[in-house]
Structure formats: structure tokens, C-alpha cells
Write a protein that binds this DNA or RNA. Sequence first.
DNA 1: ATTTTGACTTAAG
DNA 2: GCTTAAGCCAAAA
Length: 107
Amino acid sequence: MASVFTETIYTLARKIPKGKVATYGQLAVLAGSPGAARAVGSAMRCNPDIPRTPCHRVVASDGSLTGYSAGQGISTKRKMLIDEGVSFKGSKVNLKLSQWKEGLGES
DNA sequence: ATTTTGACTTAAG
DNA sequence: GCTTAAGCCAAAA
């Protein structure tokens, strides 16, 4: 572990509902440090628990699947997202339909 | 404590 | 549309 910031990133990642994805920048804001998108990715790289921290639900601001060295890498990550019901736009995630919105649903 | 790197993001060419 | 450059934040060396 590195710090509470990293821990917050993992917590937020777990809060992402199935079939939805969040961007690094979004998690950074939710973590309390907007602009720390890089730090978020760095923290994810140190991801200690894959099933506990669905880093595959975290994508770039453009919906592009970056990083991820597990399995077949991007291919596996994309497959997992599709399996969860995430809408895809070619090789990228259709953020317009599947980007997670924290707490969206209240009137 | 300082320097380097990195799963990012936005702007410009 | 794709590539290159600069900016930002945090962790690791």
C-alpha cells in the first residue's frame, strides 16, 4: 500500500457498478485530487486485488482501454467489459452510454 | 529529500 | 484522424 489516496482509488473502483466504466480523471476527482489521473493509474498498477479492485472498469478519458497487462491485456479487458454489458465503440468504450455517474439517479 | 517515471489529459501540428 | 508536446499529481528509486 502507498497511502490513503491509493486506498481511496481502490474504494472508488469497487463502487463502480457492473456494466459501467469510469475514467482515471473521474476517479481522481472522486478521490479528492482532480488532475491526479496519472496518480490514479499508478495506484491501479499497484492493484493488490483484481477481484476487489475492478481496474478493468477504469478507462481513459476517451474511453480507450489503456494499460492492463493481465491476460491478453487490452483484449481481455475489453472482453470483460463487454461481458458486463458495457457498450463498446469499436475498440473503445461508449462513455456516452456506459460511463459511470456517481450517485446519478436522484431526481 | 531529490529525481525519475507513469494504466492520464488537453492542446497544438 | 493521428502524432507530438507540455502540464499535473502521486508513488517508487
